[in-house]
């Protein structure tokens, strides 16, 4: 950062990137000039990731439950779930966004093809992140020792009660840190929906830059994203550290 300011041309860096007036203008926007507010744009990012996180938590758990099930009856679903995770973990998220965002409206299938851009963005993010999160859950479920299952079942607990009382409470401890890491990525990846034309923070900053020939709006958007992700990162680090010290205490 210091290099920016001290290097020759430092003053133009300050003017183009860190200009307080321009930063404020991009933050509040100016409807008369057709400038969207980066601040209001961020609200779109926020509701997108909140909605996606809820959906991802539910769909991811469903997929992981199916994949870790043993019943032969569920075999077709198991294959389907495996295919789903393979596909959506393997395709670049930008491609998924394009396919959903540009593809679905073209199909002309009633309501499915008449949603807002942000909704298509959410669908794409949810598809991809459900695949990631399903793997996180699966690792968590597998981390619970088999003896725990045997002990619970031998007490006459049903499969569901065993999951609820014994497996999930133990799996959650291992699952939360990687889950929060995925959420941090998800929060940032809502910016990719700008490629569809959704007016979220990144897109508003881009419009500002193109109109005013000043990049301070990008810095504002970056700072706003940092304000969201840094606290979550710190919180995740704290959880991991706490879990490690508890495990060490337990082992002694």
């Amino acid at each position: 950062m210091a290099v920016f300011f001290l290097a020759p041309g430092g003053s133009s860096v300050r003017y183009f990137f860190f200009n307080p007036r321009q930063m404020w203008d991009s933050f509040v926007g100016n409807p008369a000039k057709g400038l969207s507010s980066v601040g209001i744009g961020l609200l779109t990012n926020i509701w997108m990731f909140l909605l996606c996180e809820v959906l991802v938590l539910i769909i991811g758990l469903l997929i992981a439950s199916v994949r870790t099930s043993q019943s032969p009856v569920l075999l077709p679903f198991r294959l389907l779930a495996t295919g789903f995770t393979d596909i959506f973990r393997g395709i670049p998220i930008l491609l998924v966004i394009y396919m959903v965002g540009f593809g679905l409206p073209e199909l002309g299938i009633g309501a499915i093809s008449r949603q807002s851009i942000a909704v298509y963005g959410c669908v794409a993010l949810t598809l991809t992140y459900s695949a990631y999160v399903a793997e996180v859950y699966r690792a968590g479920l597998n981390s619970v020792a088999n003896g725990q299952l045997l002990a619970a079942r031998s007490l006459g607990l049903t499969h569901a009660a065993t999951m609820r009382r014994v497996v999930l409470p133990q799996a959650i401890r291992t699952v939360i840190p990687p889950l929060l890491n995925d959420f941090i990525s998800l929060q940032k990846d809502t910016a990719l929906v700008s490629t569809l034309g959704a007016i979220e923070a990144t897109r508003a900053a881009q419009i500002y830059a193109a109109t005013e020939f000043n990049y301070s709006g990008y810095v504002v958007a970056a700072l706003l994203f940092l304000a969201l992700t840094v606290p979550l990162t710190r919180f995740t680090d704290r959880l991991i550290a706490r879990d490690r010290s508890r495990r060490l205490a337990g082992a002694s």
Binding site: G147, Q148, L150, S154, G156, R165, V166, G250
Partner: peptide
């Protein structure tokens, strides 16, 4: 299994439950 109880070589106590809750799990939830 509610009539046939089993005790394991490696105890397999539930690490997230207190001693009392370990003992209570079967009677209360099964």
């Amino acid at each position: 299994r509610r009539h046939i109880a089993m005790v394991f070589q490696t105890f397999n106590l539930f690490p997230h439950l207190s001693v009392l809750d370990n003992v209570l799990l079967g009677p209360v939830h099964a």
